[in-house]
């Protein structure tokens, strides 16, 4: 007899747990404002991206075509998948000293995992994450970018 009661209570308990599950999914079904996914941003003009969004690594330049990169190479070392290559040059200063400057800050967007480590580790805050999001190109060589603009030089007062 107890086996029959166990059978019946098993069935009822099973139905009860199923109803519990359906109550939770039903709760979300009938509340569409809780939807978490976003539509593709078609409103490119008026769009405001989230501050934490990471699109690609860029190097900001000021109006005199000056950047803050010293060419120290810490970003290259900290990059986990080798997306950054630093090519430095040596220039002779007027007082006869030699100085290392950045020649090319090469950035491979196609390899970058947008982990933000280079930006975090930059001692002179020379590189930042941009909030661009449409990176598709027809040719993968276009994904290799030189971040410092041609003819640019280092800003005055950036500590080595």
């Amino acid at each position: 007899m107890s086996a029959i009661w166990k059978y019946i209570s098993d069935v009822l308990k099973g139905i009860w747990t199923l109803i519990q599950g359906m109550r939770i999914t039903g709760y979300y079904f009938f509340r569409p404002r809780l939807i978490v996914t976003q539509q593709y941003p078609e409103n490119r003009r008026t769009l405001e991206m989230f501050e934490r969004f990471r699109g690609e690594v860029t190097m900001p330049h000021n109006e005199n075509n000056e950047h803050r990169c010293t060419g120290c190479g810490i970003c290259e070392i900290s990059c986990p998948n080798g997306s950054i290559e630093i090519i430095t040059a040596t220039v002779l200063l007027p007082d006869g000293k030699k100085k290392r400057i950045i020649d090319k800050h090469i950035y491979h967007l196609g390899m970058c995992s947008l982990c933000n480590l280079c930006v975090k580790n930059c001692p002179s805050d020379a590189i930042v994450m941009a909030q661009t999001f449409e990176h598709a190109v027809w040719d993968r060589t276009q994904l290799t970018k030189v971040l410092n603009r041609p003819g640019s030089k280092i800003m005055e007062g950036v500590k080595e």
Binding site: T25, Y28, L34, I35, V36, T37
Partner: peptide
């Protein structure tokens, strides 16, 4: 659509 709404998604929209 129903599946999307149960999973807090929008489903096909485009």
């Amino acid at each position: 659509k129903v599946c999307a709404f149960f999973q807090q998604r929008l489903g096909p929209m485009r």
